[in-house]
Design a protein around this nucleic acid. Structure first.
Lengths: 350, 350
DNA sequence: CTGAAAGCGCTTACAG
DNA sequence: CTGAAAGCGCTTACAG
């Protein structure tokens, strides 16, 4: 016996125009705040908009005006707090600039990355912010993105070389300098046997951080033992498992520059399990300054990358690119800052 | 002297139709995999689509067919790993269902929540997944969302009462049962003086967890000291600061059921600073089972809520709602599971 | 200052 | 199986 619910037809410009006896064009001008409209007309239209509960259809407007009000954010790993903070920063700045964030997660899979990019492109984003999956190749990304949409590369470089037309912007961390600062800090504290621990050899950020480590070691004339270069997945768990590789034969290192905070926290765990007290028997540094770093036991010396701020910066860079599509592509290196905490103690005296 | 770059006009159905001598309508049928199209025609069209590098304009298609292929995800705090994992799960399941995620972060601000909802609605999402900001009011959310778009409430209830027309679905955690399980576990371990630590009194999830704690305490006939009910922001840092409130006068509690993992990790920190060893001198439990819980020292007993899986479930629920707009609204309570680790030791024997 | 007409890139009946 | 026409909800010249 229930009467059929009134179908929720959406209110359109036509309804508003009819409701107050003006044309669609005039309503459209009111909506976009044009100064052409007579004050009284404007007031009448605005009343009617409120009365009928009008909701602007931005997709229709974008279609007609050949504009876009969305930007795609494609991330390799949202579960990592570093990227989650970054995403929050991106969304905040895009929102302030009148854009909406189209989110896509790839979970470090290049196959999903291509699918996600393809799907998001169908929604016509004005630009793309891409933090690539591991082993993502430049030419494959270019094949799906084409030359239509400006892209900003964040955090990692792509494998292979970019097609000539792809003048993509980049926002990278100053990985080499960061790792160099961390290494120099350990050296200044008296360490001589220093390992580089964790990360995948073939990732660009790991390569750069290792280069910073090597630079500092060579400059100080310190020995670099191949055994002290330990690879791991960039996760806490795998890092914990790989801890023993550092101690496979004397002399053991007294300190380690870790690829990132996750790896450093994993190493702390591994050290504890071997009966070594991190920050007392063994010094270590991280990279990223995720929230846990300050709260670890002991607090972790690391490099602050300010991911939220990096997100805001990435959003600024793409929005800027939309203003000047033909300006030369920008390669921005975001600064990192050494945050000294207790994990980077001087070496134990025997 | 550089020749002007060829303007990147987008390829449309018209270009494809002209390119292989068929009508727009036929190309459209090919794109949507209609069985009506002749095999040879289809092949010709598909070749042409590839040749010209056609990209489907889903916004235009949605406009004409009065459909939508996006769903809005509005989150109170993306920096919290629980919500980041949730978002990853949502995005994964939406993507598999052919939807794109429109992301919006509110940072626990009800003002931004309304702005974000309003902005996302202009993009015509088919549905909304909302994890409300603290103190978000039902009638205010309803005022901006209207009755147009189905909404799924996640994690928290809204203040006030829903307008009659808002048959919103809900996906909530079984907070009360979870906290009861944690409390019973501590009681079974021999604890009698048990605190409830952290969280804001007026949040619905905190109320429910406290109710579970009280239920278990009352059932066991144990005393409930007002001093042992300590409020805090749901963050590690504030929880660490509030630790001393637990020990303001004898008898001190020997264990605490914490509002969530962040609070529990903060309490561990605070205990350490007081010279108390968590998991030996004092037992505690968390809630959420974030990644850090298993890796804390000692590992944290907590309630697993499987946020990634909850995200997938939320996505399923909204997509299901789109199939059956008029079915009765669903209130889903997601199960939580006690994960016993070393932080919930028996009480110390003096 | 306001309106009538055309069109953004698609899909949808409807003919044939 | 294919095409010509109309229309989704807007904005854009262009008249007046």
């Amino acid at each position: 016996m229930s009467s059929p619910l009134p179908i929720e037809r959406k209110i359109t410009l036509n309804d508003i125009a009819a409701g107050c006896g003006v044309s669609r064009a005039t309503v459209s001008l009111v909506l976009r705040g044009s100064p052409l409209v007579n004050k009284l007309t404007r007031a009448r239209v605005e009343d009617e908009l409120r009365r009928q509960g009008y909701v602007y259809n931005r997709a229709a407007a974008n279609l007609r005006s050949r504009t876009s009000s969305s930007i795609a954010l494609v991330l390799n790993d949202l579960a990592n707090p570093f990227f989650a903070e970054f995403a929050a920063g991106v969304d905040e700045a895009l929102g302030a600039g009148g854009f909406v964030t189209l989110l896509g997660c790839t979970g470090e899979s290049t196959v999903r990355e291509r699918a996600v990019l393809g799907s998001l492109l169908e929604h016509g984003p004005a630009g793309i912010i891409l933090s690539p999956a591991e082993h993502s190749e430049a030419h494959r990304v270019a094949a799906v993105v084409g030359r239509r949409v400006p892209l900003l590369l964040f955090n990692r470089e792509l494998g292979g070389t970019l097609p000539e037309y792809a003048h993509w912007d980049q926002l990278m961390l100053d990985n080499q300098r960061g790792a160099r600062l961390a290494t120099e800090h350990l050296i200044a504290g008296g360490h001589r046997r220093i390992a580089f621990f964790g990360g995948h050899h073939d990732s660009s950020s790991c390569r750069q951080r290792r280069a910073g480590y090597l630079e500092a070691m060579l400059t100080a004339g310190l020995p670099i033992e191949p055994r002290w270069q330990v690879e791991s997945a960039p996760t806490r768990l795998d890092a914990a498992h790989r801890t023993s590789a550092l101690f496979e034969g004397p002399p053991a290192p007294t300190a380690a520059v870790c690829y990132n905070d996750a790896v450093a926290l994993g190493l702390m765990l591994g050290l504890n399990q071997r009966g070594l007290r991190p920050g007392r028997d063994f010094a270590l540094t991280g990279f990223d300054d995720i929230a846990e770093a300050a709260l670890a036991m002991p607090p972790l010396t690391t490099l602050s990358t300010a991911p939220h701020e990096r997100g805001r910066q990435a959003a600024q860079l793409v929005m800027q690119r939309l203003q000047q599509p033909d300006a030369a592509s920008q390669h921005t290196i975001a600064p990192v800052e050494l945050v000294v905490r207790e994990s980077s103690c001087p070496p134990p005296v025997h």
